[in-house]
Design a protein around this nucleic acid. Sequence first.
DNA 1: GCACCTATCTGAACGGCGTCAAGATCAATC
DNA 2: GATTGATCTTGACGCCGTTCAGATAGGTGC
Lengths: 211, 211
Amino acid sequence: MREAAVVETRPYHHGDLRRALVEAARRILEGEGPTALSLRAVAREAGVSPAAPYHHFKDKGELLDAVAHVGWDMLGDSMTGAKQRAADLGSLMTEIGVSYVQFSQQHPALYRVMYDCSRDKDELPEGMQDNEDSAYCLVRETFRKVAGPDVPIVDIELATIAAWCAAHGLAEMSTFKQFEGLKAGLGGEEAFLRGVLGHLGMFQPSRLSRD
Amino acid sequence: MREAAVVETRPYHHGDLRRALVEAARRILEGEGPTALSLRAVAREAGVSPAAPYHHFKDKGELLDAVAHVGWDMLGDSMTGAKQRAADLGSLMTEIGVSYVQFSQQHPALYRVMYDCSRDKDELPEGMQDNEDSAYCLVRETFRKVAGPDVPIVDIELATIAAWCAAHGLAEMSTFKQFEGLKAGLGGEEAFLRGVLGHLGMFQPSRLSRD
DNA sequence: GCACCTATCTGAACGGCGTCAAGATCAATC
DNA sequence: GATTGATCTTGACGCCGTTCAGATAGGTGC
C-alpha cells in the first residue's frame, strides 16, 4: 500500500525476498560496479531493512555466493552455446575460449565476484569444480574428444587447467584499457582475443599433446 | 618482536613514517591476509593515529599503490634472477614463468594487492606497463631474443601477452588447494607448474611463432 | 636566542559498513 | 480464534575511511 510498482514485487511479507535480493545485487553490480555492492545497498535496492537479508543468508558472503552461482550458470550457457555453434572439431576450443573471455567482458563486475568470493574461502570457484556439468568439465570433455583416446588422462587434465588459466588471465588482462592500439591494428577486440589464444598451444588441436 | 624496534624507527616526529607505514602494511599482509589490511590497522601497527597516514598518502589506495610497488620490484628481481640462472635459450621462458608463479605462491596476499589496486583504477598494473625495466618488458625482450629476427613484432607482443595471461591465471589457480592429488601424482608443486606451462605453446621456443 | 613558518601528528567527529538482539507483524495451523 | 514460527524492522555495537581543528616541533631568518 505504499507505491504502485511495489505491489507486484512484494506479494506480502515480502514474497520471495531471497530471489529479489540476488537480483538487486546484480542490478547494483551492473550499474555501479563491485565497490558499490554492500549488503545495506542491496537491502535498500530491494526495499527492505538492512537486517532483512539475514533471514535468507548467513552473511554477506553467502549472498555473494548466490550471485556468483547465477554468474556461473550464465557462463556455462555461453560456453555450451559456443561449443554447439563451432563449425568443426579444430575450432572447438578456440570458440569456447573466446566465449569465455567475451562473457567476462560483457559482465566484468559479475565475473569479478565469481572469483573474488571463492578466493575469500580458498576454494575453487563453482564453475571449476568437478561436478557433472560444471564449466570445467565441459572443457575437459571437449579436450578428451578433440584429443582422441591416445592422449593420457593426466595430459587432458593439465591441458584443461592450462586452457582455463590462459582464458582467465586473458579475461582479467583484457579489462585493462591499454591494448587499444594493438587491438585496433589487429582489427578489433575479437581479433585480439583470437590472436592471443592463437599463441597458446592447447587452442590448436594438432598441438594438444605435449610429446 | 614488535616493541623493540620502535625506538629506532621513530627518531622523532616520527622520522620517516611513509616507509614505516608501507612496512607495517606488508607485515599485516603476510601475517593476517588482505582482508585485515585496513588503513586504521596499518596506523595501529605503525604506532600512530588513524589520521597520520593522510600526511603521506592521499588515501588508502595510494598506500596500497606503494605496497604494490614494492611487490613489483620484488617480482622483477625474481624474474631477472630466473632469467640469469636459465641454462639455455630453450628453457628461458619456462624458468621465468616458474619464478613468476612461485613468487605469487610465496607472497599470495601481496600478489593480490598488486593486481587489485590496479583493477580499481582500470589501469595496467605497474609491472605490465611499457617502462624501460618493467617485468613485462623483460619478458618481451626475452621473447624477442628467443624468437630471432624473423618473427614479426606483433607476434612477439601477442606471445608476451599470452604468456603473461597464462602465468597470471596459473598464479591465481594454484592458490586453490584442490589440485593436491594431481600435484602429488606429478611429483610436487613445481612439477605441476612445469606440467601446466608445458602445455602452453609459447613456453616452448620451437613453437613461438603461430603459423 | 628568538619568533615565525611549515610539516607532521593527534583527537574528535561524520557517515557508512557488517552484524546482532529484541520486538513487531502476519500466514498457517490446530 | 489462539498459538506458532517465519519474516521483517528498529536500534544498537564496533569497525571502517576520511576530514578538520588544534597541538607539536624541526627548520629558517633575524
